[in-house]
Amino acid sequence: MIAFLSRRLLTLAVTAWLATLLVFTILNVLPGDPALLMLGTEARPDTLAALRTQMGLDQPAVVRYLRWVAGMLTGDFGVSYTYARPVGALILERLAVTLPLAGFALVLSTLIALPLGLYAAARHERAGDWAVMAFGQVGIAVPSFWFAILLILGFAVQLGWFAAGGFPGWQGGAGPAVKALVLPAVALALPEAAILARVTRSAVLDTLREDYVRTARAKGVSAWALMVRHVLPNALIPISTVLGLQFAFLVAGAVVVENVFTLPGLGRLVYQAISQRDLIVVQGVVVLLAVLVVAVNFLVDVAYAVIDPRPRVET
């Protein structure tokens, strides 16, 4: 167990380090000079040189990389070229939108998917099952940005129930802020709910085939008790694995949806930063997301090892 954990931890560290290297390399061959973008068409060569020195862009790449990584280890992500503010603070500010949004979407998709999946499993190979499976297929196939546009068209423009975009901030109270997140959360939740409903269905079906469930059923345990006491707890393992993995992708996958709804979240920050060549912000966000994904994978592995402590065989 200890050996397994330390091996996984080492993998985590190596992957995270490779991620920083990869991101830094990619971004530093990216065409587009951040200094030139700041100064615009009237920039003179001497002004540009002065600004590049000020921004530290005249340093060799190796020095910049080491400085950046060393800074991150102490929690210092550097200072944004364009916003002139610490990247860490910028990210935290944007997470105040993206994390609630992803969480909202996750809760929403779970609330939709769990009952649907259970229902489908209970009605295996019957009309209800087919309907849920159809939802599962359509939900994955619909592009989330298109669904977002349709939501705006229906609920913001036709019905006028929600604003078409924007975010009032949390300082005005939770009510308006949550309201602004409803449509984006629904747009994000649809594909997640579709995936989750399918996973739930097949996990429940698998559990129903297990011997102990068959035994319990033979003993005359009621269908309801069987579901709640035996099937659901076991089916929750694969479901929560998928949930964990999807959460990391929800945070990242919000890029396009945040753009459609003009939400000041992490996805829009990184998208703007890419087009403004605010490399230090892009580096910070991408590495953060990568580490988040790796860490969630690690936790999932650990959880599996704890639940099922048989020696692990690579397959």
């Binding site: 546009i149 705006i152 913001a156 423009v157 006028g160 604003a163 078409a164 975009g165 924007g166 753009n259 459609v260 709804f261 003009t262």
Partner: peptide, 18 residues
């Protein structure tokens, strides 16, 4: 000064009076 990059969002926020 509100910043709305998306054209559709811009139109609907004017229509909505935001």
């Amino acid at each position: 000064f509100r910043f709305i990059a998306d054209p559709a969002a811009q139109v609907s926020s004017i229509l909505a009076g935001d």
